[in-house]
């Protein structure tokens, strides 16, 4: 294999990995105060991409306006999901895993409604302002500025999420609720409000992922399920709750997948990734950067 080919594959791998990592981080944001793993997160990414297509390509709105509207709309949908599919079940301790089914049901509804509204054809979405999809040659390295933009946005947004958790009052409150819901309530924190906020923000973040990934992946209703699985894989390998771990794992996955494309069909790559995840989970059940004992009964 030529050096140029190898570098091009790695560039693709890192870009895809950054996207997977963003999906994983959006899981984490919703998971932290609730211990609910939102099965609809992948479809929320898909909605971000479809809305971006509708607003930016169809309605020809400027990128920033379109992105803001898409994020706001998906955040509202995330909030709606929290209200109808999660809130009631969190109150009932006896069905403490009922949310698996209810959020899965929500994702099925979103996917199938989107299929009816948008059809199944892939659609183009404009790149981030200032970036293009044209390839640049930089020594032996070929890449597009949109790829650079995706990686930068992923790193910057993860840094921002970490900063919020560590430095702001809201972030500390989320960590307190994650630690002990009842104790946090005694300290004047409202877990219910934080749960709603976290779901809305996680949905907006998922939408952002969709908006920046869509120019590369094309917006179609089928990307949600794929990104749900890949995002989960990044999360599982990186360790639940660890955002930088998700980035490292995402990039690892992206590169394995991308390099695998040399000799494997897409279908075999899927199996290869699943095998990698199963192996990691068997050896390190809490991922490479996670810590055990998140919740004991």
């Amino acid at each position: 294999m030529l050096l140029e080919d190898l570098l091009a594959l790695l560039a693709t791998g890192v870009t895809m990995g950054a996207i997977y990592a963003m999906v994983a981080v959006s899981f984490n944001v919703a998971y932290k105060p609730t211990n609910v793993f939102n099965m609809a997160q992948g479809e929320l990414v898909m909605l971000g991409a479809m809305f971006a297509w509708g607003l930016m390509t169809q309605s020809a709105l400027p990128w920033l306006v379109g992105a803001a509207l898409a994020l706001a709309a998906v955040a509202a949908i995330g909030l709606f999901e929290e209200r109808v599919a999660v809130a009631a079940l969190l109150r009932k301790p006896s069905h403490h895993h009922g949310w698996i089914i209810s959020t899965l049901a929500f994702s099925i509804i979103v996917l199938n409604v989107a299929d009816h509204v948008y059809g199944t054809d892939p659609q183009p979405v404009p790149p981030v302002p200032g970036a293009t999809l044209d390839t640049l040659q930089w020594g032996a390295l070929t890449f597009s500025t949109q790829q650079v933009a995706v990686v930068l946005i992923a790193v910057a947004s993860i840094a921002l999420v970490e900063w919020v958790y560590r430095r702001t009052l809201v972030g500390k409150a989320v960590r307190a609720v994650a630690e002990d819901r009842d104790a946090a309530r005694l300290n004047g924190i409202s877990p219910a409000r934080l749960t709603m906020t976290s779901f809305a923000i996680a949905a907006a973040y998922a939408a952002l992922t969709g908006v920046v990934a869509a120019p590369l992946l094309l917006a179609s209703t089928s990307i949600g399920l794929t990104l749900l699985v890949k995002g989960f894989m990044a999360l599982a390998i990186g360790g639940v709750g660890s955002n930088w771990g998700a980035l490292a794992a995402g990039i690892l996955l992206g590169c394995v997948e991308s390099l695998g494309s040399v000799s494997l069909t897409p279908d075999y790559r899927q199996v290869l990734l699943l095998a990698v995840v199963l192996l990691v989970l068997l050896v390190r059940p809490f991922g490479l950067f996670g810590r055990p004992g998140l919740r004991e009964v």
């Binding site: 698996i100 399920l225 749900l228 699985v229 989960f232 899927q270 199963l278 989970l281 068997l282 059940p285």
Partner: peptide, 26 residues
């Protein structure tokens, strides 16, 4: 099921989703 023996149940849901997609693909 092997990884699910030690992990939280939602891990297993996603592993099964990935498995379903892989099987049809294969």
């Amino acid at each position: 099921g092997l990884p699910a023996l030690r992990l939280s149940s939602w891990y297993f849901v996603l592993i099964t989703i990935a498995f379903s997609l892989s099987v049809t693909a294969m």
